[in-house]
Amino acid sequence: MAIVELNKIRKVYDTKVAVEGLSLTIEPGTMFGLLGPNGSGKTSSIRMMIGMTVPDSGTVSLFGKPFERTSLHRVGYLPEERGQYKKMRVVDQLVFLGQLHGLTEATARARALVWCERMEISEAVEKKTEELSKGMQQKIQFIAALLHEPELIIMDEPFSGLDPVNATLLMDTLVELRGEGKAILFSTHRMDQVEKLCDAIALISRGKLLLSGSMREIKSEYPRNRLQVVFTGDESFLGHAEVAEAKNYSGIAEIKLHREVGAQAVLAEAIGRGTVINRFEVIEPTLEEIFIERVRASFGDEEARGIVDA
């Protein structure tokens, strides 16, 4: 059973098309990355997923059923804009949000305390939100999204504005939650995070889906025909027939092959010639490279440059 299933959803705001025929599926126990440059329709898609706005056409299914509001008790949502009641005490705030998600006051309070401990902000529990640092506020928001133990966790740009220590804490927590079988969707424009965390991704740009699938599938579509070799000694193996192009930066060679399978032959050739190999790596295309290439193919150079800037 798919946790989320979007089928050709479309949303137009006045004259601007925010999302155009987007379809995607999220399975339980996966970490799903929704990628795209700023203004590409990530937040609009998420809003439709949780019924905040209604798609103009297309359907949204949650937990194998057409969208209904009662399903929302099983969803945890962290919006991109962090919003909290400034004058409210942290614990009251968490209890209130927990109750809105169908918890009793006692359960919400107990879980709030446990989570604050886990996120290392126990000392903030009795304080007002406005007295806290931005990072702490973000953690509280994170807890608020998880308090009711949702099966689907949706996070819009969860890592933006966090220092590396806290970002890691957050990532580790998400990985643990995935281990418990929860489906996690997060949107980001930072590709490096996605490569590390995600099982599946969808790339969108200008409201359109460019690419989707499991990380392995996507990468396998792109040739692994590049090598990086760190060596000492004879460099004549760079002239092997499988090598299309080679650059040697005094002991670190970047090689482009004609075929993926040529890598082993090149390695054998180097060893045969007595070259000492310190490192030999088949380089996978990075998601960023794939993304830029896809955007360039669909929309031209101008748009692709925008992604790199973002």
């Binding site: 929302l72 400034k86 809105l100 998600h101 999204a145």
Partner: peptide
């Protein structure tokens, strides 16, 4: 306006109408 500027209702609207 307070909920709007602090974006609190984004969280609220994820569960209630």
């Amino acid at each position: 306006i307070e909920e709007k500027t602090s974006r609190v209702f984004e969280v609220l609207l994820a569960t209630i109408k």
